[in-house]
Design a binder for these strands. Structure first.
Lengths: 330, 330
DNA sequence: TTGTATGCGTTATCAC
DNA sequence: GTGATAACGCATACAA
């Protein structure tokens, strides 16, 4: 690998001049030409470490997420990398596997100047380690006023789900949720759901097991067995994620419950496992591309020392699938 | 961020001594203690750029693949990052989107010392740009003797697929493939399939459209309509990937062909869209974890200047799904 | 407009 | 065993 010195010698100029050419600083056209020729001839590539040491910029952002091996995160990671690349940034991928220590290790790395900033989607308590001098954007989770976050409009999503079931003819709705206490923005899905039901005087039930309980599946199945299969009290289900929705559907189908004829189901996420994949279930789709775009815009603004809006809430959409009846509106 | 100088001053020693402590070089216990205390007090983190500039090592590897937004690549990326992390390496994720120029840009980046090595899964002709002084491991594709590659045993996979169909009672087999000419290791799936059929005197047909043809789907459907739906000449299909298999199954089901009763189908890849996902179709599963492990082992060995075996072929397994009949052997 | 010189934070080679 | 110092490759303030 040739250095700036060698380029300077070959071009018959000084290193300073070469540096100027590289960084697009005014230089006499003729010298510029000579330098560019030398660069080409020597196949010179600036050493990013020397530059990084000097200017303290690496053009690299870390993306911390539970695991890229998940349709939602995969799509998100893909889009974020794409956006970053457009802005000449590289992306270090960090699968935290939801592990607190792994997340911390990555944040430490960030502080060692390995990266200019972090985009994180995490549910552990890394708050104390997130100092305000480290540019960071959070997805789907509120930390504090210092950390801007971008998220889907979960409240609206909950409303849309309830509305979707309502308009498709359901009489008695139900929200099924669970998972970590920390996912405080996804909590709003439930709130939106309830809000719609209250406002429109729809019957509804809530099955929501927060915190980790090993036997969540058992309890949920018991709930379904009683309320849906036996008593037939519920004919519209909003599951907090597509994964839950799928699970519920599989369970009900075992008991010959027809979907959507007898029971209608709406999920949340709208993930596709790849670009060409087709979504089968009715769902509230998160605007993953937009989330990616806003996150990248945010982190770069932060790196550039600009002020960034503390929260960016992005609209969601109802996607008609095969698990709700088709109405005029959908 | 504090520097090594400040640590030295606080500990009452020289920078050289601090450096020794950091790099675990013998130092008097007492001084070591003092230095470590100062490090803690100042919350000192070595600057990786200064170190990188000095030792020309970044502890970073680039992973180039078409898109992480794909179950197979997602799983692969997840596992590779996991392995790299265990070895104290970071991973830069590069979605090339199959684009030649993007791949090139990333290779250029690698040459700028941003990364110590590359793990690539690419189908374009980047051969000329891959100089032997840049550590690189290829997955699924042979470039030349200078570039070690790791791959599934595609030939064995082809044999297993044919054997699976045969033992499940199929009389007349068929291979359906297509895609890029460049995927020369996946070509072996076809070879293995043919090999089994020849050796065991099974009837077989090949439908293989190499190169890109816009109307691949049309032609394939026409083929299926004639051979499977109308003439009923084929009762066992080996599709070169799960994606094709799925497509074929959906198509046949439209014509009320029962699978696996009338026609049996085996795919290739065995991808799950997440850890908890369940595979539904019968398939030949690629050992993604092993591929990840071997790639990482390989790239690190290369970085460390060791010699690496030019090819690593890993065994595949037949996975019984719902699209082939169950036999005693399976 | 261009060249020279200094320093970024670290490691490594010397002396001591 | 420890300290002083040169060097890594580059950007930049300043001198010419």
């Amino acid at each position: 690998m040739s250095t700036i010195k060698e380029v300077a010698k070959r071009a018959g100029v000084s290193v300073g001049t070469v540096s100027k050419v590289i960084n697009n600083i005014e230089v006499k056209p003729k010298t510029k030409q000579a330098v560019e020729l030398a660069i080409k001839e020597l196949n010179y590539q600036p050493n990013v470490y020397a530059r990084g040491l000097k200017v303290n910029r690496t053009q690299t952002v870390a993306l911390i997420l539970p695991t890229v091996w998940h349709p939602f995160f995969g799509e998100l990671a893909y889009n974020i990398e794409k956006c970053l690349r457009k802005q000449q940034y590289k992306m270090i991928l960090c699968n935290s596997e939801g592990d607190y220590l792994t997340e911390l290790a990555y944040i430490t790395m960030a502080k060692q100047n390995q990266v200019d900033g972090i985009i994180a989607i995490t549910y552990s308590d890394i708050e104390a380690y997130v100092s305000s001098n480290l540019p960071i954007i959070s997805i789907d989770r509120f930390f504090n006023d210092q950390v801007p976050y971008v998220s889907s409009d979960n409240f609206l999503g909950g409303e849309l789900a309830a509305k979707g079931l309502d308009q498709a003819g359901c009489q008695s709705l139900c929200f099924i949720g669970g998972g970590s206490k920390k996912e405080n923005t996804t909590r709003n899905r439930r709130k939106g759901f309830i809000n719609y039901c209250e406002k429109n005087q729809k019957n509804y039930e809530i099955f929501d097991l927060t915190g980790k309980s090993d036997n969540f599946n058992q309890k949920m199945e018991q709930f379904l067995r009683e309320k849906v299969i036996e008593k037939r009290e519920i004919d519209g289900i909003f599951a907090v994620t597509d994964a839950y929705a799928l699970q519920i559907i599989h369970f009900l189908e075992q008991f010959n419950i027809h979907i959507p004829e007898e029971v209608q189901v709406i999920g949340f996420d709208g993930v596709k496992s790849s670009l060409n994949d087709q979504i089968e279930i009715s769902t509230i789709r998160q605007p993953i591309e937009k989330i990616a775009k806003e996150s990248v815009k945010g982190i770069i603004a932060l790196i550039d020392g600009q002020v960034v809006s503390p929260e960016m809430i992005l609209p969601v959409k109802f996607i008609q699938g095969k698990t709700t009846k088709i109405t005029k509106n959908s």
